[in-house]
Design a binder for these strands. Structure first.
Length: 466
RNA sequence: GAUCCCAUCGUCUAGUGGUUAGGACACUGGCCUCUCACGCCGGUAACAGGGGUUCGAAUCCCCUUGGGAUCACCA
């Protein structure tokens, strides 16, 4: 076991977002690669917005993606006393002070500064205040260093430096006594002995403040790796209006977890010309320092391609299990119908998602009640009837059949009636599936069975005969 | 507005001073074929702009432009 300790720290105010999922994946991969520890921490210090439903949704998303954590989930809300203790430490050391400015006053000052084009930062009114009004509501602020710079070496972005002038005295404890985010992360990351903080790059601007906090508290500063954002097709931050952003939504749309993780790992990271990565390959080849510095656009087309790849190469039995809920959703019962494994096999080359596969699988379980008229119209009525009669005769004459057998029978019909294969196969396909687009006839007939095949052809014959 | 970050085909990316700038998705031409797909072969398509440094820049430096993030008693 290496010393590497990483964490994924979502705030439970919604479902697991694909961006969050990628951050979690990168953390997980780095931990697995190094033999380190992956910790899950729920940042629920905002009691107002945090919900149990969100926690469950996040855990469900993590599990579905197979990102198992080694420690946790830990809840920040359980550590309030700990934060209080450190606030007091800072207060005692003179590294923090009480501020009696009201939220209204602060808002007014901030707006004024913005209007006048100045930096909207705290003016330090209470920084050197000597009187301590008893019983007055107050917050606690960190006494930030005034001059100089604060810098850190980001594993992804390189060295980042901030002038301390830009950083004001941030609030670490609210009027109601609860701690604020930037303070909690530092305490948690330090006490959990996190060695590498891998998170979204919307946090880079928070990092110098946190570094100052680590230093004031006497904690070792961890390494940071800020992962670029995921954007929508218009290059704006990915949001619902670009489509689904919840990983569970992707599951429900029929995506495979290995396809999503494969897609996500390639967003911002690559290994030569490779596109397909098994779990093991990902773990072996991934390295957080190899992640790119720029944001990337989420592209559903490529995700579809990967999903199709994993459907094509997936185990039919497993896919059948995963397909079942999508069929149930369509009020289709597979009981008494063809073996689902056989059905899946006919569709693996033809579906990009399980939803699409379910649509295409429908006819196996529900005999067509109507036929594609436009397709039917392309064929001569008398010839079709002859094909149907011949097919019924041929299929009735055998007791069992395989794909090659179907092929042979169709050839015979083609020769007997002196019709091209296309004129034999298509009418039969329409009879069996109702549509002009379906898997190979051999596959369909083997899955359906001779009895059902003959019955469907007879039904179609009656329909065509009028 | 301030600070910070970013910049190779439409998209994801390879490239780390010398390449016909490579791969993948998408698009597209053809082959295969009982349909639709799969598969196979081929094609279109990029170094944001301008200055340097260098014998030589996609690669190093500067500026411009364009994107993004953050500036809360949210996380």
């Amino acid at each position: 076991m290496s010393e590497l300790r990483v964490r994924f720290a979502p705030s439970p105010t919604g479902y697991l977002h694909v961006g969050g999922a990628r951050t979690a994946l990168f953390n997980w991969l780095q931990a697995r690669k190094e033999g380190g520890t992956f910790i899950l921490r729920i940042e629920d210090t905002d009691v107002e917005r945090s919900t149990k439903e969100s926690v469950d949704a996040i855990l469900e998303g993590m599990s579905w993606l197979g990102l198992e954590w080694d420690e946790g989930p830990f809840y920040q809300s359980a550590s309030f006393p700990l934060y209080k203790e450190y606030v007091q430490k800072l207060l005692d050391a003179g590294k923090a002070y009480r501020c009696y400015c009201s939220a209204e006053e602060l808002d007014a000052k901030r707006n004024l500064a913005m209007q006048e084009g100045r930096k909207p930062k705290y003016d330090g009114t209470c920084r050197d205040r000597s009187d301590l009004p008893e019983g007055q509501p107050c917050v606690v602020r960190f006494r930030a260093p005034r001059g100089g710079v604060t810098a850190f070496d980001d594993l992804i972005k390189g060295k980042i430096t901030f002038p301390n002038e830009e950083l004001d005295d941030l609030i670490i404890q609210r009027t109601d006594g609860t701690p604020t985010y930037n303070f909690c992360v530092v305490i948690d990351d330090a006490t959990m002995r996190i060695t590498t903080v891998i998170r979204g790059d919307d946090h880079v601007n928070n990092t110098p403040r946190q570094v100052q906090l680590y230093e004031a508290l006497g904690f070792p500063v961890p390494q940071f790796a800020h992962v670029p954002m995921i954007l929508g097709s218009d290059k704006a931050r990915l949001s619902k209006r670009h489509g689904a952003t919840s990983v569970i939504a992707y599951r429900d749309m029929g995506y495979l977890p290995e396809a999503l993780t494969n897609y996500l790992v390639r967003l911002g990271w690559s290994s030569g010309d490779d596109e397909i990565f098994s779990r093991d390959e990902m773990i072996r080849k991934f390295d957080i320092s190899g992640v790119g510095r720029s944001a990337s656009v989420f592209n559903t087309e490529k995700l579809n391609w990967l999903n199709a790849h994993y459907i094509k190469s997936g185990d039919p039995q497993r896919l059948a299990d995963l397909l079942l809920p999508h069929l149930s959703k369509r009020d289709v019962s597979t009981a008494g119908g063809p073996d689902m494994t056989l059905v899946v096999k006919t569709l693996q080359q033809r579906a990009q998602t399980l939803e699409e596969m379910a649509d295409r699988a429908l006819f196996f379980y529900v005999a067509p009640t109507s036929y594609d008229e436009a397709a039917l119209a392309k064929y001569d009525k008398e010839k079709m009837l002859a094909v149907y009669d011949a097919a019924v005769a041929k299929f009735s004459a055998v007791s069992s059949i395989d794909e090659a057998g179907v092929e042979a029978l169709l050839k015979e019909i083609s020769l007997d009636l002196e019709l091209k294969m296309g004129l034999v196969g298509q009418p039969v396909r329409i009879a069996l599936s109702g549509s002009a687009q379906a898997p190979g006839l051999g596959e369909i007939i083997v899955a359906l069975g001779l009895k059902e095949t003959i019955s469907r052809i007879q039904k179609a014959r009656a329909f065509v005969a009028g």
